[in-house]
């Protein structure tokens, strides 16, 4: 089962490596991980996507909670939530393909951020599957690079992961 674990962690040097180290030391798998500061500069929020059976995920959650720097965490997959991922794709273009890429970008509600004589940089946010679909819709030979943030998420309703 896929789990999306959202972690509120002290914004201290080494906090990220404590989390990453825990996963490698205990043999847990990380599909994606992103981290950035919150509205409170002393706290970072980390979103981690992992897969495992119920027992493994229970251990992951307990072991993360045991880290002294971890303030709070929640497994977003357990309740209604929204997930978004940011992607930027650099695509080789020719005068023949430009229109097609632009309309494809529009269909996926993306934006063209940068244009050169031979390339486009397309920006897109959404659930990870949508980004997968966009990449699949483009001729792989024209893709120069793909940058993805990994999903971040937030729960629906009044409840929030805060102090």
């Amino acid at each position: 089962m896929r789990h999306i674990i959202s972690i509120l962690i002290e914004n201290e040097a080494g906090a990220l490596s404590r989390v990453a180290g825990l996963f490698s030391a205990r043999g847990y798998n990380i599909e994606s991980l992103n981290v950035a500061i919150t509205e409170d500069p002393s706290l970072s929020r980390m979103t981690l996507v992992t897969r495992g059976n119920e027992q493994i995920v229970e251990q992951i959650v307990k072991q993360l909670n045991k880290l002294i720097d971890v303030v709070k965490l929640v497994d977003l997959a357990e309740s209604p939530h929204i997930e978004r991922e940011l992607m930027m794709v650099k695509i080789k273009t020719t005068s023949h393909t430009r229109t097609e890429i632009r309309s494809l970008t529009e269909i996926f509600r993306g934006k063209v951020l940068d244009v050169t004589a031979t390339t486009y940089v397309v920006e897109m946010t959404g659930p990870s599957e949508k980004l997968d679909a966009f990449v699949a819709a483009i001729d792989p030979d024209t893709i120069i690079e793909v940058v993805r943030s990994g999903p971040t998420g937030i729960s629906r309703g009044e409840n929030g992961l805060c102090l």
């Binding site: 027992q55 229970e58 251990q59 307990k62 072991q63 909670n65 045991k66």
Partner: peptide
């Protein structure tokens, strides 16, 4: 005292 020790190897 350690929740992580509970059900780690034996349910």
């Amino acid at each position: 005292i350690d929740p992580a020790s509970i059900s780690k190897t034996v349910k």
